[in-house]
Simulated scan of single mutants.
Amino acid sequence: MPKPRSQQISLSDTPYYHICSRTVRKAFLCGVDTETGVSFEHRRHWIEKRIFQLSQVFSIDICAHAVMHNHLHLVLHVDSEQVKKWSTLDVLTRWHKLFKGTHLTKKYQHNSPLDKYELEMVEETAMAYKQRLIDISWFMRSLNEPIARQANKEDKCTGHFWEGRFQSQALLDEGALLSCMAYVDLNPVRAGIAATPEQSSFTSIQLRIKAAIKGKQPSALLPFIGNEHQNKTTGLAFSLKDYLILVDETGRILREDKRGAINAKVTKILARLHISDNSWLTLTTNFEGVFTGAVGTAEHLCVFSEHVGLKRTHGIASAEACLNSA
């Protein structure tokens, strides 16, 4: 029986989450239908555009993404601190970019006169909107519903396009986060769709590589800020260069369809994460198989389970084998 979201998401433990959403039946999210020869590749543009549109409205950042043939992966960062700084007008302006809102919220946004009771109603509504703007379920609903309507209209059919529930995994520490991001970024290489990370279209790694060539980082993605930027509070506390090396070297091994040796540079990076070479390869090839729920060291998993009210801590053996392995 699926766990309720309250037992899968705990912002007090971590702001980082791995999300996977799959299509139903033989519905094509993207790719080419081998039976009919019809191409659905254009839908990748729909999805990527919508993901980045939502990240500009919600207080949720994109760490990694990969749009595959019948599913999509996201690694999200919920910025619950940023939303606290938003005024009522900020919240309503953002909400109205996606939803109609109410008659009173529209009047407030347009600076129309409101009496005391109406202002109280607006403030109450804005508080509800503010909570939704850090809610992963609302984010995924806002992503999946429009895509489903577009796809069904194009396919001239009705009914479900996505599976009823998206999968979510809490990423409780740096090792869990980096290995999950690499797993997501290497999806096309692992599936044989792309030969190298830079050729993996509609992935975050391709965007990061293209920007890095110009000495930049993509504005649509949560940036790497490295340990040398301790004054910055928002960003991935890891070196972009190290991450690109990790993904590139891992991708080369996966592409050769064999587990080759990881070079000294990568081994040094993994040592900081307390992950052995073999464990890293296991995580980046079978992350969702190794961990079916929250991901982190054994200690972090125990704390998370207590906070979300789970009687048993799942994944202890996998955590000790993969994330406490070096």
Results as ranks from 00 to 15, higher is better:
R43M: 06
M127S: 15
T14A: 02
A170D: 04
L54A: 05
K130E: 11
I213C: 02
R94G: 05
R132T: 00
S200Q: 05
V67D: 01
C30K: 04
E118D: 10
I316T: 03
V295P: 01
L254T: 04
L222H: 02
H274V: 14
Q199F: 06
L54T: 01
T93W: 09
P146A: 09
L29F: 09
S219E: 15
I253W: 07
T14D: 07
V83F: 05
V247E: 01
V290P: 00
N70S: 14
K85M: 12
L171H: 06
E124I: 02
A27S: 14
T267M: 05
N231Q: 15
V38R: 11
M121D: 03
L310R: 13
K268W: 08
T88R: 09
K214Q: 15
Y16L: 07
Y183A: 04
G37Q: 06
L254C: 12
V303Q: 10
N286K: 11
F161R: 06
S279G: 05
R94I: 03
S39M: 08
L177N: 01
S305W: 00
L29P: 01
K106C: 08
K258I: 10
A264G: 00
G175P: 02
K97L: 15
P2Y: 05
A264C: 06
R132E: 04
I269T: 06
H229S: 15
L89I: 14
I213H: 10
E163A: 10
N144H: 04
D277C: 11
N286R: 13
P197H: 01
K153A: 12
K26R: 13
R252V: 04
K210L: 09
T297S: 15
F202I: 08
P2V: 07
E299R: 08
D90N: 14
S279T: 04
A220F: 04
T267P: 00
F287R: 06
A237Y: 12
G251C: 12
I253D: 03
H110Q: 14
P2K: 03
G37D: 10
H307L: 12
L281G: 00
T267A: 09
E306K: 14
L310K: 08
H18G: 07
L76Q: 00
H42P: 00
I134K: 03
P188G: 09
L240R: 06
T292A: 11
Y117V: 13
A170G: 04
Y108G: 00
F238N: 01
V189I: 15
L207T: 05
T292M: 11
E118W: 05
G293K: 05
L92V: 15
K130W: 08
M1K: 12
L301F: 09
N231W: 15
K3V: 04
I269E: 04
L29H: 06
W138K: 07
A264R: 14
C157A: 08
T285S: 13
R25E: 12
L310Y: 06
A66F: 11
R149P: 00
V57I: 15
T234D: 07
K216C: 05
A321I: 09
V295N: 05
V24S: 03
